[in-house]
Amino acid sequence: MCAVRALTKTYPAQRGRRGVPASPEVRATDDVTLDIRRGEIFGLLGPNGAGKSTLVRQLTGLMRPDSGSVEILGHDIVRHPERAARILAYLGQESSALDELTVSLAAETTGRLRGLDVRRARAERDAVLDELGLTGLAARPIKKLSGGQRRLACFAAALVGERPLLVLDEPTTGMDPVARRAVWSAVDRRRAEHGATVLLVTHNVIEAETVLDRVAVLDRGRVIACDTPSGLKEKVAGEVRVDLVWRESAPLNVPEVAALRDRVVESGRRWTLRLAPEEARAVVATVTGGAAFAALDDFTLATPSLEDVYLALGGAARQGLVRA
């Protein structure tokens, strides 16, 4: 469906200007090779700045790579970037082109620009707005909607005019659970009825675990792993994650707690530990009894998530991923 081979893109070094420090050359996409199969929901997971959007922009023909190839449904997108627009629908992070239109006109115009005639564009617009529960907001300008509704309206525009590949860059940002469900059921329907393929960019590990068939984990422009979410999680199957939240500060006077100090990832009052199951049991026993318990506000014990996979694979960002 979509084959990416040795894709590389480097942003040149920037000279410093007043108020803007100089930045060195950045390799935003570093020798990326991927295969996306027909009908799957394929994810790109990584913290902000990992190069997800840059990679997607190259797959959608918006940016030319320095080297490497992208082939979608047999079309060479590097040589013919304009063909991407006739194969895929893209939902970018920006909505400024649609902001001042009403929800209904944004969807209709997008359909018209995908080559539909007026009748088809209007029929598809009505069907999509109905499907996503946006009919009540149809006459409102997108600008005046809340963040999540605005995102949903742009998603609606992306769906008008059937495409075999949907490229969605963080589609559910700011959405409430109802809107999220509407997005995923719309995606599922297109997959079941038309065999649509979805490329999803996300930094949300829960979303990645629940909706993706396969996921490529990106870090600093490189793909550090690519597998099914459960396959990836097996890589850290031997570990358990322990989160400890202290009331004020960690009771370092307790020797067992002090001993953990070099192994935790601290964020405010929260300590996060990745441990072997028996070690985790021992830690839980320590903190839930004796002097440490008085200082403890909350604790959780969990099986590893894709965030743990990312960190175990050497991911650099400590807090770039979101669990929501």
Binding site: R57, G61, Q93, L113
Partner: peptide
């Protein structure tokens, strides 16, 4: 503004 904010992407990914 459209160019700076990335709004042109919307049109550029449509076959127009």
């Amino acid at each position: 503004q459209l160019r700076a904010s990335g709004g042109l992407d919307h049109y550029a990914t449509l076959p127009v």
